[in-house]
């Protein structure tokens, strides 16, 4: 199985430890992932800003970079969702179709491709899970409160399997954090307020480690946590899972 790692630009530049943990966790699960150095971005920032046509060269570059892999794995649900849903405006060559269907969110890949549902290890902390909307509602990786009262999902299951890890029960299980890509600057006021409310829900319910599957949400929430100097550590879930495995 030929697997490539795709890292969104902000993880590459600001959160290299997330990329490293992804490679290491995959290795522990028996997968050696390549990192094609010519990779750039999925094009979402442009497309979400209304400049989808400007993103076409970026889409093509993405496909060219990853066309020869069986799977493209990314620790970023939002980018994966973009590739799978919105790469429909370029010609649907076999390569494009292949890349769209084989691009998988990391935890979806671990559970549904590798068939791993439990992570042996320990992380004795109170962890608050932030669900990314694109992972949850876009890729259907978790139940939605709009449909059912049952709180369940891929990441929740993986985290629950770690010894000593206690998940926080939030008042609003799946409210958006307000990052929203360029929304975070074009609607900076609302974006910040949404993030503050999200963080408060965690603080109120005892979260000490705030985690999730999408670093973009977490970058925004971490920015608020640090500005308000709150006693909450923000980690991508892959850092927790990789660190937990001995």
């Amino acid at each position: 199985m030929k697997v490539a790692l795709f890292l969104p630009c902000y993880i590459d530049q600001f959160y290299p430890q997330v990329g490293i943990a992804t490679l290491q966790l995959l290795a522990k699960l028996g997968v050696r992932a390549d990192f094609p150095q010519q990779q750039t971005c999925c094009g979402q920032p442009m497309a979400n800003s209304g400049c989808e046509t400007d993103a076409i060269p970026v889409y093509r570059h993405f496909v060219d970079t990853f066309r020869d892999y069986d799977y493209v794995v990314a620790p970023a649900g939002s980018c994966v969702y973009h590739v799978r849903k919105h790469f429909d405006i370029i010609e649907q060559t076999p390569q494009v179709q292949h890349v769209r269907t084989s691009t998988r969110e990391l935890f979806d890949f671990i559970i549904n491709v590798l068939g791993v549902t439990e992570i042996p290890g320990s992380f004795p902390h109170k962890v608050g899970l932030h669900l990314s909307c694109h992972g949850q509602r876009g890729l259907h990786q978790a139940n939605e409160s709009e449909m059912t009262p049952v709180r369940d999902g891929q990441l929740r299951r993986l985290l629950s399997s770690v010894q000593g890890l206690e998940l926080t029960e939030l008042d609003r299980n799946d409210e958006c954090c307000g990052f929203g890509g360029t929304f975070c600057v074009s609607e900076a006021g609302i974006s910040a307020r949404m993030g503050q409310d999200r963080v408060q829900d965690h603080v109120r319910n005892g979260t000490r480690v705030l985690t999730g599957g999408d670093m973009s949400c977490l970058m925004h929430l971490e920015g608020i946590v640090r500005r308000q100097q709150l006693p909450v550590k923000v980690l991508h879930a892959v850092e927790i899972l990789n660190g937990a495995v001995v």
Binding site: L7, Y10, I11, D12, Q13, F14, Y15, P16, Q17, V18, G19, I20, F35, Q37, C184, V185, A188, G189, A192, G195, Q196, M219, H220, E222, G223, I224, R226, R227
Partner: peptide, 18 residues
């Protein structure tokens, strides 16, 4: 506008690709 209510990420010495 990001920084009105948020800190920017603390930049690491090395990027992932490096």
């Amino acid at each position: 506008p990001w920084a009105i209510a948020r800190e920017l990420p603390a930049p690491p010495k090395q990027s992932f690709r490096e």
